[in-house]
Design a protein around this nucleic acid. Sequence first.
DNA 1: GCCCAATTTGTACAACTGTACAAATTGGGC
DNA 2: GCCCAATTTGTACAGTTGTACAAATTGGGC
Lengths: 225, 225
Amino acid sequence: MRPNLREALLRNAVTLFSRSGYNAVSLRDIAKASGANVGSLTYHFGSKAKLLREVYERHTVPMNARRRELLGEALRISDADQRLMAILRAYVVPAFVSSSEGDGGGAEFTRMRAVLSAEGNPDAQAIIADAFDETSRAFIKALADCVPGAPLEGFIWRSQFLLGSLYYALINPDRVTRLSSGTVDGNDREAAVNQIVEASYASFRSLGAEVGQSTAALKYATEEK
Amino acid sequence: MRPNLREALLRNAVTLFSRSGYNAVSLRDIAKASGANVGSLTYHFGSKAKLLREVYERHTVPMNARRRELLGEALRISDADQRLMAILRAYVVPAFVSSSEGDGGGAEFTRMRAVLSAEGNPDAQAIIADAFDETSRAFIKALADCVPGAPLEGFIWRSQFLLGSLYYALINPDRVTRLSSGTVDGNDREAAVNQIVEASYASFRSLGAEVGQSTAALKYATEEK
DNA sequence: GCCCAATTTGTACAACTGTACAAATTGGGC
DNA sequence: GCCCAATTTGTACAGTTGTACAAATTGGGC
């Protein structure tokens, strides 16, 4: 009996899946990375799809719990703009930071989610939908309350962009480094979190200013259809 | 001799790759979709990697050409805000709209790029870096000129988020439909383009208001509305 | 020390992969 | 009508995949 082979297998699965996707990683790759045999995977998890499901559930629960916890704190802020900012941080931070000490880390799992959602793996897609939409809805509602009177459609789309930004920052951090000729470190996750939060803060907040000054450019956009 | 089997193979390759990624699609899948034999693929392209490269080059050139064309038009706008908006459209629109009539369509190719970049395929990664960074740099420079005095770092990150938003909107449009309980159609690409442009317009424009404060909320708190 | 269930290993299997290449087919130029 | 190069097909190959299952190993309870 190994110390806890099962845990090691799960950890290495996240790492490898997040690096190369679901299809490109074989059960033998995971076994080899864990210093174990292929059979141990079928023994512990039954199938590759069930392994994936187990990985998901292992990280999903604490991450969403943390998000809701931080969301609760954020909702106690009375100032709408500061609350908006806090809500955004409550959504983004748990995706980048390790949720429970010692696991693979939130960023690695989030990156895995990003890769799997792109791959269009049917198993993953179903699990994502089940596990995350409820939380996303709660956040959208909270965000919408910060900018009263704005159309819901804008919040839905911007929450989509927020997730896409988050995913791509984890998938392709080197592009940031490359584009800046090394000036900016794309792998600096603290900077990434701050930039994402600030950028989406501006995009959400602008939903409220639909009828005001400097709408000239906005008009330009909607006219040109 | 077939009408133009070669073209059909390329078209179907984009479609299938964009749907399930590079690894999950076999040459036999592509051949079958084209009503042809596996051997025709090795004959025309030599290998799977070379096929991918050919697909890339086929779409990359006209898409970037279109982007630069629209960028040139945008740069003739004197008003900084309207120019900012036009530059963003010049970047986003060619990614969604078919570049040359009759090909697979810009959105399908862009979606393929998104999936491949997530999969971390080495071939694709190299091609992306070669082909797109130069154009991206030109856009970042143009954007930065619209918001003078703002730190370059912010433009780099926001261009990353713009690309991530764009990708994710194409990868997972159904999430938008689902989150809105069917009210918003995530597959409405015209709406997606407008939303992306408006959201990133706000995020880029907000860079100008920065005066060294760490968070926008703090800045807002100390400002007068 | 022995037992027995839990675990781990080893191996076999059919299906599928990308690639290679000989054979068959095609169709325009003469 | 025939030729010949271009194209398409068919098939074979070695390697990898997920899964199944018998055999070997482990280690705590007695």
